[in-house]
């Protein structure tokens, strides 16, 4: 019988390649999760001290994570197609990985913005900026968990999915509040517009996480019927 042997087959050479591919997918998700943590830390550093060497170090961490995640993703995709694995879910897994990768790109893009444009964030907005970054990263953390569950335990996907939606809403609330406050302030218009673009950069991360969650919900339904 098929599933009875599941526990014993871990070291069978026959499944070594499968195991390696499982590890690569996990590693890809780890990179995304780590990039989120580095992003949160980088934003905190920038808000407290500006574009310091420590900030740049975090930025370069995210860069490295992004390029190695790209590399992993391409390897996984190639293997899925050349070995004709999971014929039914192959397209879905590809879509999932590419969308997750785009979240990583958003992290990277937002941090480059801070590094290049070094926006001047007045004291009164810094708290909300930090909260916004927090909610965005929380959303990404949840989508990473939901994606892991998609591979390992399909029934648990829903446990994480609703959190992604929750964090996206929270991020929306904070960003709206922040934008209102910015435009209600005495700052020059150019400064206001500059700040708004950073609010949007961070909010986009949460939005994209929600987009991924929407797709994942469909993939999950497809796999359970």
């Amino acid at each position: 019988m098929l599933p009875k042997t599941l526990g014993h087959a871990k070291n069978v050479p026959l499944f070594r390649r499968t195991k390696a591919l499982e590890n690569e997918i996990d590693a890809f998700l780890d990179k995304l999760s780590q990039a989120g943590l580095s992003f949160r830390r980088a934003v905190q550093i920038y808000l407290a001290e500006g574009a310091t060497a420590e900030f740049e170090e975090k930025l370069s961490d995210v860069n490295t994570l992004e390029s190695s995640a790209d590399h992993l993703r391409r390897g996984i995709e190639t293997q899925l197609y050349t070995q004709t694995l999971i014929p039914e879910s192959r397209g879905d897994v590809l879509g999932l990985l590419e969308n997750l990768d785009s979240v990583l790109n958003l992290f990277e893009g937002a941090l480059w913005g801070f590094s290049i444009e070094t926006p001047d964030i007045p004291e009164q907005f810094r708290g909300d900026f930090a909260v916004l970054a927090d909610q965005a990263v929380n959303g990404v953390e949840s989508i990473v968990l939901a994606s892991r569950a998609f591979f390992r335990n399909i029934e648990a996907v829903a446990d994480h999915m609703h959190k992604v939606m929750f964090y996206e809403k929270e991020a929306d609330k904070v960003s709206t509040k922040l934008k209102r406050a910015i435009f209600a302030s005495e700052l020059p218009l150019a400064h206001k517009a500059h700040l708004r673009s950073f609010v949007e950069d961070i909010d986009n991360v949460a939005d994209r996480a929600e987009d991924v969650a929407d797709r994942l919900a469909i993939y999950t339904i497809k796999r359970t019927v």
Partner: peptide
């Protein structure tokens, strides 16, 4: 029975794929 067993044992998507192919 198989669906129930898969639900209980929760194999990785790729692992389940490999077992099914071998089967």
């Amino acid at each position: 029975a198989t669906v129930y067993l898969l639900r209980v044992t929760k194999p990785h998507l790729l692992r389940a794929d490999a077992y099914t192919r071998l089967g």
